[in-house]
């Protein structure tokens, strides 16, 4: 390729003008390391900036700590309690909490079957987190893919996928998953996650489609096309990295929503079978609400805090990723 070597002339033979220009740039950057951004942010991208911003937000720190803690609880509940949550001992029937007994079986008291509420709350986290995380993963991948295809290719692909999205969008999440889950026997956290995911991807798809359409018109996408880049390259190198931010925000908020949806389904007796779940416990507790509030209070409190933590995280991430809000 000798014809291309013209531009790779070693710097000693490059015209004097280059040096003048380069020197002045160098001198500029001597007084201020980067003309447009004075800080020594070596590889600062949108994400790096967002991270820098996030670390200073109390909302992010608090919700982040809660979520990390919940993940640890979900993975290894035995670290937090040695009590088995399943067998009950009617001797403890409806015992009130002993708030001084940290991390012990009777910390949060006992339920109507004499089971440790603390142990049940700890073991129940796994179901909630599994449903939340996997439903969100499913939704992000499926909705994201459909959104990208519709937004990037437009035309009849868009028309078809958008109508499909509209159809699924019309099905109420809870009612739809209720009907779907009826069909399953032996429902686990996975089946619930799948049901929620199948009905929930539309929001992500819509956000992704809109975001892709905006990014697709950017000059740098045109520039890549002008260079002869193929669709795959344009989508993965140029469109996706710039279009994904709003999707991540929507997904984080949706995660909280799925956790509460799982609780609702379990409350209605159509959620996880033979498992421990906050929703199921809330359901059982609701019949005893008049005489012993604590049976309801702890699973409901954990559920609320978890959902809130994810929604707060989503909010903080959205603010951090939107340069206009900074």
């Amino acid at each position: 390729m000798s014809d291309t070597s013209g531009i790779t002339s070693p710097s000693h033979s490059s015209p004097a003008g280059d040096y003048a220009a380069k020197e002045e740039v160098a001198r500029q950057s001597g007084t201020a390391p980067q003309p447009s951004e004075p800080k020594k942010t070596q590889a600062s991208s949108l994400w790096a900036n967002a991270w820098r911003d996030l670390r200073r937000r109390p909302v992010f720190i608090v919700s982040g700590i809660i979520i990390v803690l919940l993940i640890v609880i979900a993975i290894a509940p035995s670290l937090f309690t040695s009590t088995n949550p399943k067998p009950g001992d009617l001797a403890h029937f409806m015992q009130k909490p002993k708030l001084g007994h940290f991390f012990e079986a009777d910390w949060f008291g006992y339920d109507g079957q004499g089971r440790s509420i603390y142990a049940r709350v700890i073991y129940g986290a796994r179901a909630s987190m599994t449903v939340g995380v996997f439903a969100t993963l499913f939704v992000t991948v499926a909705g994201g893919l459909i959104g990208i295809l519709a937004g990037y290719f437009g035309g009849w692909v868009d028309a078809l996928l958008s109508r499909l999205t509209d159809i699924f969008f019309g099905i109420p999440l809870l009612l739809g998953s209720l009907v779907m889950l009826q069909a399953f026997t032996g429902r686990t956290a996975w089946t619930v996650a799948l049901a929620l995911g199948v009905l929930g991807w539309t929001q992500v798809a819509r956000v992704m489609r809109g975001s892709v359409i905006t990014v697709k018109q950017a000059d740098y996408v045109q520039a890549a096309r002008a260079l002869g880049a193929g669709n795959g390259r344009i989508i993965f190198k140029h469109v996706l990295p710039n279009a994904i931010a709003p999707v991540i925000v929507v997904a984080t908020i949706a995660l909280g929503m799925y956790i509460s949806a799982e609780a609702t389904l379990s409350y209605m007796g159509i959620g996880i079978q033979n498992g421990i779940s906050w929703g199921a416990d809330i359901s059982t507790a609701s019949s005893q609400i008049r005489n012993s509030l604590h049976v309801l209070l702890f699973p409901a409190g954990f559920l609320t805090v978890t959902v809130l933590a994810f929604i707060m995280l989503g909010d903080a991430v959205r603010d951090a990723l939107d340069p206009k809000l900074r």
Partner: peptide, 25 residues
């Protein structure tokens, strides 16, 4: 090497190769 040469040709410091666009005017 080619990219660095190109930066040199257009009057930019070849050491800027790892920077992001928003760090430039």
């Amino acid at each position: 090497k080619k990219v660095q040469d190109l930066l040199d040709v257009v009057g930019l410091n070849p050491e800027y190769i790892n920077r992001y666009p928003h760090q430039f005017s």
